[in-house]
Simulated scan of single mutants.
Amino acid sequence: MLDRPLRAVLARPVDAIARVLDRRWISPNGLTMTGLALGVAAAVAAGLQWWWAALALWLVSRVVDGLDGALARLRKADGRAGESEAGGFLDITADFVAYGATVVGVAVGATAGFAALWWPFLLVLFAYYINGTAFLAFSSIAERTGRTIDDGRSLSFLGRIAEGTETIVVHSLWFIMPFWAAPIAVVWAALVAVSAVQRMIAGYRALR
């Protein structure tokens, strides 16, 4: 609701900062990854209950994240390397990783002493979040650019080690062996996270 009016207000100062950052050794993708690193650092700080540090890191990460697109558009307008589909994919995926990471960090920090009850499942949720973002963002951009993957599904799905069948099996194991649910969740979260990283890399390369 507030994105459009806020963008209008901040357009000029953001463009001005982008011009200051327009140096050969600074790239839009580099800014994206810097924003991601700062967002994850904010999540870690929150988990350690360093709340003011977390707030500072989070705000700086979002400022940096807002500059990658501005720098790309500036270079495109000047006839240099500018916005790319791969960069857009990387940006939205990094955003959702940062968002999910901070949710986990705040949950750990705000409920210290009780995390043992739910943290394995929260890791699974975090992995699902990243994984879903990667393949949904790829599917959307691939559709728009005519680079779809047609395997009979409605989306352009980047298949990897954790897919629908594996998900059904793991969820069934939770019901069958609830006393092992937490260890299963840890292993499953790791597998889904690996799949998410694989999809991010594959999607970025496919859209370059």
Rank of each mutant, 00 (worst) to 15 (best):
L38Y: 05
L38V: 12
L38G: 09
G39W: 03
G39K: 05
V40G: 05
V40R: 00
A41E: 02
A41M: 11
A41Y: 02
A41W: 04
A42E: 02
A42P: 10
A43Q: 03
A43L: 11
A45K: 01
A45M: 07
A45D: 02
A46W: 03
A46S: 13
Q49A: 14
Q49E: 14
W50V: 08
W50T: 03
W50R: 10
W50S: 04
W51P: 06
W51T: 13
W51C: 08
W52E: 10
W52I: 15
A53C: 09
A53V: 14
A54L: 05
A54Y: 02
A54M: 05
A54V: 12
A56S: 09
L57Y: 01
L57N: 04
L59M: 10
L59T: 10
V60M: 04
V60T: 07
V60C: 04
S61N: 01
S61P: 06
S61F: 04
R62Y: 03
R62W: 06
R62N: 05
V63M: 03
V63W: 01
V64R: 00
D65Q: 08
G66P: 05
L67A: 03
D68N: 07
D68T: 12
D68F: 06
G69I: 10
G69P: 05
A70W: 02
L71W: 01
A72N: 01
R73W: 01
L74R: 07
L74E: 03
L74P: 08
R75L: 12
R75D: 08
R75Y: 09
R75M: 11
R75K: 09
K76I: 07
K76V: 09
A77T: 09
A77N: 11
A77R: 15
D78G: 13
D78Q: 15
G79F: 13
G79T: 09
R80Y: 07
R80V: 11
A81M: 08
A81T: 14
A81C: 06
G82D: 03
G82F: 11
S84A: 14
E85H: 13
E85K: 10
E85A: 15
A86S: 15
G87K: 07
G87C: 14
G87W: 09
G88R: 10
G88A: 15
G88M: 12
F89P: 12
L90Y: 02
L90C: 11
L90D: 03
D91H: 10
D91A: 13
D91E: 05
